[in-house]
Nucleic acid binder design. Structure first.
Lengths: 185, 185
DNA sequence: ATACATACGGAACCTTGTTCCGTTTCGCAA
DNA sequence: TTGCGAAACGGAACAAGGTTCCGTATGTAT
């Protein structure tokens, strides 16, 4: 692949993420192309359909969120890493409200996304949980996927952009995890 | 209101219902106008926004479903009326799958619909239930709204148009209602 | 240095919602 | 019955956004 193509794909994903965040996933392609400093033809060369671009942005952000897990695991105490990552996940969910409605729009282009979502995020969280459990910081027996669903549910009440409520609830959840922990002797 | 206007509104609602059923609620206005034998200008005279037409169609169909309750009550035995109406309701829900996604599209034009839905259908079902209860055909203590929700949930698995599964489940539900009945002595 | 495949840009096209306005029709009153 | 004004009609024209096309520019391999 030519270097300029690679560069443009990257600019497009960056620009699209920013425009989607500001104007929702219904934002005009032309706006995104302009923000990326690129012609619409280039957009369609790399993303034949509008939905392809949306899906690509989504996947990239899921990746970023999943990757944050290993970074946090490498730099924080187990329980800190877990709680920080969940906050990161809260931000991710909150930012993707517009995308959630796209998911339920019935367009089959979005069908594979939930599976990708789970495939990337569940192992990430599972690893954080496992580390925290072996460190004796949180209890055992909590399913990673359940936790992801629960946090996502906690985020839904916040119609506006505020994640304060969700963050408080997630804090509570993490305290709950700590509750039954078996501290290392 | 002029007679021709009344006629056209009616044709439009009929045409829209038919087109929506065949092509979904995203069908072009022009198609509907043509099917109604009317110009687009006329559509916009009566329904200033596309969503207004969708909402009107929806309300009319909710009305039809609700009205069916009193008709059935007048012509059937209490328990028959109840079970037939629930089947009618299954058909209604199944036909409105496209509309369901419109409801969750975030467009505020659809916000008042769920309330209308409940306002028309819950009393209708409540009356059927009450009659069946006093006739000793079904048990007491079942909430009409709960039942509406339950039946709607039972319809969701059927992605395709088939309502067979939902109908079987609703039959089961009605049998459940009969189970604890106190037959008149 | 050259050639050519690849990628780029953006004008043009198509579809679809919406507006506008000249024309037609209805319903009432003389 | 006829005439008139308001109401309604039809559809061309506009706006906006997705998608296509193709002449031009650019990277890369020889």
């Amino acid at each position: 692949m030519r270097a300029d193509a690679q560069r443009n794909i990257n600019s497009l994903l960056l620009a699209a993420a920013s425009v989607f965040a500001k104007a929702g996933v219904d934002a005009p392609i032309r706006d995104i192309a302009q923000k990326a400093g690129v012609g619409v033809g280039t957009v369609y060369r790399h993303f034949p359909q509008r939905t392809d671009l949306i899906v690509a942005v989504f996947r990239r952000e899921v990746d970023a969120c999943a990757d944050a897990a290993s970074e946090l695991a490498a730099t924080c105490l187990p329980c800190d890493a877990l709680s920080r990552w969940l906050m990161r996940y809260v931000d991710f969910i909150a930012a993707k409200r517009g995308l959630a409605s796209a998911l339920h729009s019935g367009d089959p282009a979005f069908d594979p996304l939930p599976a990708y979502f789970q495939a990337r995020l569940e192992p990430a969280l599972r690893a954080l949980l496992a580390t925290a459990v072996t460190a004796g910081a949180v209890r055992d027996g909590v399913d990673a996927f359940d936790l992801l669903q629960a946090v996502a549910s906690l985020c839904t009440p916040a119609r506006d952009g505020s994640t304060d409520h969700a963050r408080r609830m997630v804090d509570l959840l993490v305290d709950g995890l700590r509750y039954g922990a078996k501290p290392k002797v």
